[in-house]
């Protein structure tokens, strides 16, 4: 199966998030959930831009960002591929990056009046969902 068939991106102009970041986020999510496996190709810029009907510069910008984050690698003449999940960043740096994101969600939870215990339950629930998705995406390989 080709990556294009398993990866369905959707742009939402009402989210207020820059379009290229929506592409970055969705590809990161697809890679994290196993919808696209490491080593698999992601669509090249032109067909993806045409399909989503967005400027090809937007997709190019998203791919540059994904490459600099170490999510994909581009092999000249072959296309872009999901990299094996070895973050090039040191553990402390990774923790720090994640801490910032978590802090933002905690602030959001506070404003939405979601108490800490409920918040933690929600996190566990989402981890379980992601885990489930990852498992269902692992295609059994014939020996």
């Amino acid at each position: 199966m080709t990556a294009g068939a398993t990866m369905l991106l959707q742009i939402n102009f009402k989210s207020g998030m820059p379009v290229y970041l929506q592409v970055v986020d969705q590809i990161k999510t697809a890679a994290a959930s196993g919808a696209i496996q490491s080593g698999e190709a992601i669509p090249s810029i032109r067909p993806l831009a045409e399909e989503l009907r967005v400027n090809r510069n937007t997709i190019a910008k998203a791919y540059t960002e994904l490459e600099s984050q170490g999510i994909i690698e581009s092999i000249p003449g072959k296309g872009c591929f999901i990299k094996p999940n070895n973050s090039p960043l040191k553990k402390e740096v990774r923790r720090k990056l994640l801490t910032e994101e978590i802090d933002q969600v905690i602030v959001q939870a506070h404003h939405l009046q979601v108490p800490p215990s409920e918040f933690l339950n929600l996190v566990r629930e989402r981890l379980a969902v992601m885990d489930e998705r990852q498992r269902s995406n692992e295609t059994p390989k014939s020996p």
Binding site: R46, E50, R53, V54, N55, R56, N57
Partner: peptide, 18 residues
């Protein structure tokens, strides 16, 4: 209309990125 826009993105923008 849809094909028109896809063509502008695909065939036109493809030539000289940026």
């Amino acid at each position: 209309r849809r094909e028109f826009i896809e063509t502008v993105i695909g065939a036109y923008q493809e030539g000289g990125p940026g």
